[in-house]
C-alpha cells in the first residue's frame, strides 16, 4: 500500500503523520480479524457494506467526478453475477476465474456500449445507460445460454463459510478503495478533480473530456463487475430481472449522495448508512423502499453535499488524502 496511503505533505512528520500511516493498516487488521471472531450476522452485514461501498465508489467516480450520471451500472453487476454463475455452476471452474472474467467481460461490454451512449450528453446519457441495462435484462431472460428467466442457483456459495465470503467481500471493498485512491492520485485523477469542479473550464485547460470519461467508465465497469460477482456469491441465486434491476444503481446513487459526491470518504459513510438503514427497514415490509426514499430526501435537504459536505465545510478533513503539495 506504499505510495497510495503513505504520500503526505512535505515536511509533515511526527505523531500525526505516523498515525495517518498506521491507522489504515490497523483498521484493515481489525477488519481481517473480524473473519475469525465476528458472528455470522455481523459478517453478513459487513459483506454487504463492503460490496455496496465498492459499487458506491465506482458510481461516485462516474457521477461525482467525471460528470457521467449513469443509471445503468446494474449492467455490470448482472454481467459479474452471471459470469460467476456460468463459470462455477455450468462449467465447474474455480471461483477466482469467475472474478477475473467478470472484470474482463464488464470492460469489453462497457467499451462496446460506450460507442452509442457516449454520443449522448447529460440526461440522455443517463437514460441511455438505463436502457442498455433493461435490454440486458430482457435479453438474458430469453437467452438459452443464460437459462432464460429462471437463472441459476449458485451452489459454489455453499462451499464457502460466511467468514470466507466476508474475506472475499473485504478484498473487493478494499481493492475498490485502492483503485479509487490510485486513480485520484494519478494524472487522470487531477483531470477528474478538475472536471468535478468545472468541466467546461477543465477542457479549456487542456483536459480531453472524451478520453478521461471513457477511462473512468471502463475502470468503474471492471470493479462493478467484480463486485457483482461478489454480491452474487453471497446471494447464491441469480435471475435477470433482479441482476439487471435498477435498484442496484439506485443504491449506488443513494450511497454516493448521502455520503458526499466527489469525495473518497463519502461512499464509505454512505454504504454503512445504507446497509444499516435497509436492514432496520426490513421490519416495515412493503413500505421500506418508500421510507428509504423519504430518509434520502430528508438528508439531501439538510445536507445537499452529503455528510462529507458538512464535515468539509468546517474542516479540510480527509482520511484518504488525495491533495497535492508543492515539494519545495
Amino acid at each position: 500500500m506504499n505510495g497510495i496511503f503513505s504520500k503526505g505533505p512535505a515536511g509533515m512528520a511526527g505523531p500525526a503523520w505516523h498515525a495517518r500511516r498506521i491507522a489504515p493498516i490497523a483498521v484493515l487488521a481489525v477488519l481481517v480479524s473480524l473473519a475469525f471472531w465476528g458472528s455470522d450476522y455481523l459478517l453478513s452485514i459487513m459483506i454487504l457494506i463492503m460490496c455496496y461501498m465498492a459499487i458506491g465508489q465506482m458510481w461516485n467516480l462516474l457521477g461525482g467526478y467525471a460528470g457521467l450520471v449513469s443509471l445503468g451500472q446494474q449492467s455490470f453487476i448482472g454481467l459479474g453475477g452471471y459470469t460467476l454463475a456460468k463459470i462455477t455452476q455450468v462449467y465447474h471452474l474455480p471461483v477466482i476465474l469467475a472474478f477475473v472474467l467478470a472484470a474482463v467481460i464488464s470492460v469489453l461490454f462497457a467499451l462496446l456500449i460506450s460507442i452509442p451512449v457516449f454520443k449522448m450528453k447529460g440526461v440522455y446519457f443517463t437514460i441511455g445507460t438505463w436502457i442498455v441495462a433493461e435490454c440486458l435484462a430482457l435479453f438474458f431472460s430469453t437467452w438459452s445460454f443464460s437459462n432464460y428467466a429462471q437463472g441459476y442457483t449458485i451452489t459454489a456459495t455453499y462451499a464457502f463459510s460466511t467468514a470466507q465470503i466476508y474475506l472475499v467481500a473485504l478484498a473487493v471493498g478494499v481493492g475498490a478503495l485502492i483503485v479509487v485512491m490510485a486513480v485520484l492520485r494519478s494524472r487522470l485523477g487531477l483531470a477528474l478533480m478538475a472536471m468535478r469542479d468545472n468541466a467546461a473550464a477543465s477542457e479549456v485547460r487542456g483536459v480531453e473530456q472524451y478520453r478521461t470519461k471513457l477511462k473512468c467508465f471502463l475502470i468503474s465497469a471492471a470493479v462493478t463487475g467484480i463486485a457483482g460477482a461478489a454480491l452474487y456469491l453471497n446471494q447464491a441465486f441469480i435471475q435477470p430481472a433482479n441482476a439487471f434491476g435498477i435498484s442496484w444503481t439506485v443504491s449506488m446513487v443513494f450511497i454516493a449522495i448521502i455520503g458526499g459526491m466527489g469525495t473518497v470518504e463519502g461512499p464509505i459513510i454512505g454504504a454503512v448508512i445504507f446497509v444499516l438503514l435497509r436492514q432496520a427497514l426490513y421490519n416495515f415490509p412493503g413500505i421500506s423502499m418508500m421510507l428509504l426514499g423519504l430518509i434520502a430526501i430528508a438528508i439531501i435537504m439538510i445536507a445537499p453535499r452529503g455528510i462529507m459536505g458538512i464535515i468539509r465545510r468546517k474542516t479540510q478533513f480527509e482520511i484518504f488524502p488525495v491533495r497535492r503539495h508543492p515539494s519545495a
Binding site: 478533480m193 468545472n198 467546461a200
Partner: peptide
C-alpha cells in the same frame, strides 16, 4: 473559472 475544491497550487 477556477477549480474551487482544489488548492491554488493544484
Amino acid at each position: 473559472r477556477s477549480f474551487e475544491n482544489m488548492t491554488a497550487y493544484e
